[in-house]
Design a protein around this nucleic acid. Sequence first.
DNA 1: CTGAAAGCGCTTACAG
DNA 2: CTGAAAGCGCTTACAG
Lengths: 345, 345
Amino acid sequence: MASIKDVAAAAGVSVATVSRVLNDHPSVSPDARTRVLAAVERLGYRPNAVARSLRTDQTRTLGLVISDVLNPYFTELARSVEEEARALGYSVIIGNADERPDLQDHHVRTLLDRRIDGLLVSPTDGGSPLMLDAARAGTPMVFVDRWIPGLDVPVVRADGRSAVRDLVAHLHGLGHRRLAIIAGPAATTTGSERVEAFREAMAEYGIPLPDAYIGQGDFQAESGRRVTEGFLGLDEPPEVVFAADNLMALGALDAVRARGLRVPHDIALAAFDDIPWFVHTDPPITAIAQPTGELGRAAVRALVDRIEGRPPRSVTLAARLVVRRSCGEDPNPPQSPSPVRRSTP
Amino acid sequence: MASIKDVAAAAGVSVATVSRVLNDHPSVSPDARTRVLAAVERLGYRPNAVARSLRTDQTRTLGLVISDVLNPYFTELARSVEEEARALGYSVIIGNADERPDLQDHHVRTLLDRRIDGLLVSPTDGGSPLMLDAARAGTPMVFVDRWIPGLDVPVVRADGRSAVRDLVAHLHGLGHRRLAIIAGPAATTTGSERVEAFREAMAEYGIPLPDAYIGQGDFQAESGRRVTEGFLGLDEPPEVVFAADNLMALGALDAVRARGLRVPHDIALAAFDDIPWFVHTDPPITAIAQPTGELGRAAVRALVDRIEGRPPRSVTLAARLVVRRSCGEDPNPPQSPSPVRRSTP
DNA sequence: CTGAAAGCGCTTACAG
DNA sequence: CTGAAAGCGCTTACAG
């Protein structure tokens, strides 16, 4: 590939002048500029970003380490992150941890080695020494969705507490009393917080959350399946299963179907995280929706603020309950009878 | 951050020696090695990949430009690509074109500027000058899923022809004669091929595919919605809509539901690309499944072969039809009555 | 086995 | 406005 030297030679100027033209430095004569631009065009020259990064000590790249790309929530998050980053002149490199701390570590290490300007992470666990060291060493970092307490790192996330309270009110109103949850890993904030929010909301109605109704999942479909099978095998199975993310809800659906049971007739189902498919599942699934796009954008802005020397802000946005039919009789029946609605028994 | 110089000073050796132990060069004394490793440990030294890349002229990075990250098919593809790349010692940077040629170009350019070792692309269109030039200039490149004819670039893809024939046989067997398709952009191979395969299979049954039954979509949900509305507004609407990808199927479902109609009672639906949610939609959707993971892995192997000087091979794998209930009466009823099955009218 | 030195492709004070 | 030169952090022939 043509290098800056080739361009300089072709334009009859020094490499310094070529560099100035390329970087829009003001002190370049119109004539020199024209010749350089012509040479660039003729040679099809493209600056080597690797060399530039080495010299300037900045890569204009953000690292994003997410827990699971296959989870539509994170895919959407990644998309909004890339979009906002691009608008601000940054690229993003995504590392998929697949809910595995070792993989997360691998990606953090690779990203750090590549000298990304800043790191956006949704931690899979409590944080490895590598990540903690990086944070303490001053690597610009922002947590999205999940975070690690005790670190001076801004957090951008959704607070689901009030939406969970709305969900429990909805379930209680439908007459459900035996409520179970498929939790995420206790090592993640979203893993423990969602259980706590659920327990607290239930307490307001005087309903306990027995251990047998807390299933330990890992945010992936297979665990939702396994936990749900366990629930269904109980002497007194729960009336409702609340999956702490959409993939575990998918697993739960698989398990219910495998047993030959129906939602919500035999067991009700609700999920944290809303996705477009929930409108079309059988039945449509009641879910707690996060403002995913806004979270991604806010996270990027916080990180770029930090990188560029401005004080970054933590952001907490509200999640909201979207009621559909997976927990029982539609509580908001349409005014006029619609042919879409199924005649429920 | 500590540099190789710091390590050299701390270990009392030259930077050359440090470099040698870091790269497992054989000629290093055990003593030197020990001291270097200790210094590395003590300083928390991590080699600067940017500097190494500049020097060695290789980044050990693959670029992957996909048409739409929000499409579960591509997400899964991206995941398998990253997995295989990691196994072979490469990282991957994903660029999401969002089905927009301008964005695709942006990512190709950025990736090239970063001097990735090779490029995996699923082109959104017929290819911009930039991409064509890069291919002709010898940038290691492999097409996945979609490709651009006339270029000496290996292609890794699935052949859906026989699965589409199976689908048409299935539809014909169900008594359907008015079959419509929501096509992808004609500029993409998968956009045009799927229509052709559909048309040819229909011809075998003496069924024509009129223009009115070919809707022009762009592989994204909104276009599926729009096209389906058009079909439903026809004097003689089709009995079946075949969406050329899963997102347009989602849009089609939205449109059908908005009209207060039901699948398959009022109109049948099938999709290219199978996803886990299709098992749980109302009704479960008949789809053509690609061996996505295998495609991603094969594409990476071909690209790495090319990069490392081995002859790369094009690969074509077969797709297969997965019959569910969205086209009408289940043609393979279970032997014993199952409580899962709905009593269809 | 080891080190001094060149060089990868840039950017940027410095001097003119 | 322009260029020569230093230097970013590495790797790797070359000489010893």
